[in-house]
Design a protein around this nucleic acid. Structure first.
Lengths: 139, 139
DNA sequence: CCCTGTTAGTTAGGTTTTACCTAATAATAA
DNA sequence: TTATTATTAGGTAAAACCTAACTAACAGGG
């Protein structure tokens, strides 16, 4: 009981450590180790929304348009984002993620991918199925 | 192969979601949902160090002493921390965590504990041993 | 085709909050 | 006396917002 819980704790802690190492490595590879949680959340929103204009992002994030302009300018300086003019309406600009911006927006996701890569390297097929079965039980 | 990786992904994502729900619930139970990453890190430092004075914390965190005074005052207002005068030397003050402060400093840890609680509820002994064995393989 | 009104994003010029700092001060210890 | 602990006073710089005013571009009616 108590001892087994301790082992479970260590095993899970190890798993999380591996994942966190991966995601913070991604950030530092981008040279942006001190990004705030908020900034990452904005990049994720841009990533998820696809075609986002300034007005749209202002609406979604409940900020004024000047705030968005400022934010985008900062992200442009960080090379996470660029403006793409809309072909149909020359007033509107799309906010697009650069490769760097995408890597940051998807850092969590990618970190999990890397953990899985390691798993598929260290566990055989039967073991993988077993692990999936066990984790699926948790709801 | 591909499909199994997908299942692994879903299973792990679920695990992380459960853990994150737990830790953010702890924060909101304390009525401090908008704490910054930095603030939580400071509380963790205080928690880990045990007997911390103002000068000591200034040294550890490489801030000036007035900055620490200010930070502690804010934490006192948030009811995360209190001052305890040192009996031997009446110039020095220990910075101590309140119950609330401890809960926040240990939120991650507790979240993992709660996940394990669920595991011990849903998995039998054999399954738990199995899971430990599989996760231990990952280094 | 022009005029008018509307919309998209930008600029200018704030405010407020946060997170730090130095210098000076009071209380206490050695 | 001198050194050390924490505090106070007062200040800076950056972050993260805002409103109001502006420019360029579209859209519809006369």
């Amino acid at each position: 009981m108590r001892e087994r819980e301790e082992h479970l704790f260590e095993a899970l802690e190890n798993l999380l450590r591996v994942k966190n190492e991966c995601s913070s490595r991604i950030l530092s590879e981008c040279g942006l180790s001190d990004m705030t949680v908020k900034q990452i959340a904005y990049l994720k929103t841009i990533d998820e929304q696809g075609e986002v204009t300034f007005s749209r992002l202002a609406g979604i994030t409940r900020n004024s348009k000047p705030t968005i302009t400022e934010m985008v300018n900062k992200f442009v300086r960080m090379e996470c984002v660029y403006r793409e003019p809309c072909a149909d309406d020359r007033r509107v600009m799309y906010i697009r993620l650069t490769e760097k911006g995408q890597r940051i927006a998807q850092a969590e996701h990618d970190a999990l991918r890397r953990v899985i890569e390691r798993m598929t390297e260290t566990l055989d097929e039967r073991e993988q199925e077993l692990l999936i079965g066990l984790l699926k039980k948790l709801r």
